[in-house]
Design a protein around this nucleic acid. Structure first.
Lengths: 211, 211
DNA sequence: TAGATTGTTAATCGATTAACAATC
DNA sequence: TAGATTGTTAATCGATTAACAATC
């Protein structure tokens, strides 16, 4: 059995993917770990170590084929196998996500948008009609929904997450300030805006002190 | 001179702050590293090591005073010293941030919202009138703006960031897909939604494989 | 005082970097 | 073949965990 790949490596994968995408745009067909390391400001060793967690994608004396490596990382990230998603909580943040995020490009297919607010139900966000949260269980079953983006308030987030887990959701993208208390076999990614703001606050104070 | 605190520690600070806030809400006045470690699912050793990067906030045989520790971490994060901020790019994401984020609670004071689109200039988002990007330099100088939240498109993000750096901005919260090429003395926090989606995609595939 | 729990030093573990033989 | 660059092993570095004396 393969050893589990460390979080440090996984966290870097999207960044590799991004840089490779840019290289493709700029017409670059081939790159060495050294050249990439200079672009990305990390060591060539780290790049080679990271990639070799998943296989030998390069060729001695040549480097890496950019298109090929891009595709391979896409496969590793599971972007080729689209997972079905819903968004729960059609507030400002939820609407912004629906309108601005290219889910298809990142491994997901957004199938529906839900809210419990009677005022919102029936209105539209982009191509989506906001559906009643009351009917979410049937929708999940019928459409085989695997992932949920949660943009509900902190107060209700854990109740919602637990209900959705019960209904078969396997992954959450959580935007609320609270932490999800889902089971171990459920995948969770958190986007805590307030944490980011606080880290920025710290970093700004630190940089200022350096001068 | 104090040794630089590692990123790993800094990244955990907002999480401590969050848990301590919850303890205060629940009326808990005192906690040991052991009890907190169980709540947070990390080791007590790590908590004590982390806190001791900044000072001895506890008391032997007693533990930590929750209110006191909360305040101290707030100070470390620089939340007490409000920094002035502007938001650039009043698209859906920008608007959602203005309407939903409690900047004051996280160390910042939002002073203005900017966009270059003539259609948007003059309209309002919450309490803010959208101002013309053309006048941003004067605004920054007059209001001593320190930080900018950037929610412009990937295409223009680096031009905007470079201009703002030139005008004296010291920190960026970057929501665009691109990486900022700002100078070393500028603080940057990135929120790459697409990276989070891809990580979630990976984790879901991984969890599924475990079964 | 006895018990609890910190602050801190030492040990361990894991991640990053360096080195180099393999090979295109 | 000679040069380049990988994949991989070994060395280093840093972060996490364990242990324990200090002390409330």
């Amino acid at each position: 059995m393969k050893r589990k790949v460390s979080d440090s490596v996984i966290n870097r994968l999207p960044r590799y993917y991004r840089y490779l995408g840019e290289l493709i745009s700029s017409g670059c067909g081939r790159i060495s770990s050294k050249a990439l390391s200079e672009k990305m400001n990390i060591t060539a060793s780290q790049i080679r170590q990271d990639l070799n967690c998943f296989g030998g994608f390069g060729q001695q004396g040549y480097g890496y084929n950019v298109n090929n490596l891009y595709d391979e990382i896409g496969k590793i990230l599971g972007i080729n196998k689209k997972k079905t998603a819903i968004l729960v909580g059609a507030g400002n943040m939820g609407k912004a996500l629906v309108l601005n995020t290219n889910f298809e490009k990142r491994g997901f297919s957004l199938k529906g948008v839900f809210d419990a607010d009677k005022e919102k139900i029936g209105t539209t966000v982009g191509d989506y009609e906001i559906l009643d949260y009351a009917g979410i269980e049937d929708f999940i079953k019928e459409n085989n929904i695997e992932m949920a983006i949660i943009t509900v308030s902190k107060a209700s987030v854990n109740q919602v997450a637990n209900e959705l887990e019960e209904m078969g959701i396997k992954g959450f993208l959580n935007f609320s300030y609270a932490e999800l208390n889902t089971s171990d076999h459920i995948a969770v990614e958190n986007i805590h805006l307030s944490d980011s703001l606080m880290r920025l606050s710290y970093k700004m104070a630190e940089k200022e002190a350096e001068c």
